[in-house]
Simulated assay, not measured.
Amino acid sequence: MKTENVMTQWGLRSLSYWMTLFIALGILFIGLRFILLPRVSVEDFGIQVCSQSDLAFGRIKGIRDMYSGLALLALLLGRMKKATAYVFTAAIIIPCMDCLQIYLNNGLDLPRMLVHGLTAVYMIITSFLLFSDTNKATS
């Protein structure tokens, strides 16, 4: 199996690049916020804090989010659009499961569920564009 890192023209002139960058920077910001302000972030997310030890879960989410943002940034900076497309598409599970967690914990909390649901839709559209860009470059 041959592994190849081919630098492409994909980058600043591509809508999918900017859409992915927006999510990467946004999730990095959210991750930092969960680490620095866990109580506020957890409550804004839609989970009630029962004790001080519950805040550890907010920090854990922050670490997960920071990793996700940094991983996407690394792929973007390397202009690895195919790898970005696969990783980004796999990450769609995160806002979907976040939306489900809000529902399971709070019932039909539309404002919070919409944030995660719309994020998932945005990511699906971005994923489609990433793969469309990838197919154009390889054909």
Rank of each mutant, 00 (worst) to 15 (best):
E4A: 09
M7C: 09
T8G: 02
L12R: 07
R13W: 07
S16E: 08
W18P: 08
I23C: 07
L28T: 11
I30H: 06
L36C: 09
L36A: 07
P38F: 06
R39I: 08
V40D: 14
E43K: 09
Q48K: 14
Q48R: 13
S51K: 10
S53D: 14
L55H: 02
K61G: 11
R64T: 10
D65T: 09
M66D: 03
Y67A: 15
Y67Q: 14
Y67L: 15
S68R: 02
L70M: 14
L76D: 05
R79Q: 12
R79C: 08
A85C: 01
V87L: 14
V87S: 11
F88V: 09
T89M: 03
A91I: 05
I92Y: 03
I92E: 05
I92A: 07
I93F: 10
P95H: 06
M97R: 02
M97N: 01
D98H: 04
C99L: 12
C99M: 14
C99N: 02
C99G: 08
L100A: 12
Q101G: 06
Y103A: 06
N106Q: 15
P111Q: 10
V115C: 07
H116I: 03
A120D: 08
A120I: 05
V121W: 00
V121M: 05
V121I: 15
L130G: 01
F131G: 02
S132A: 14
N135S: 05
K136M: 06
S139N: 11
S139Q: 06
S139I: 03
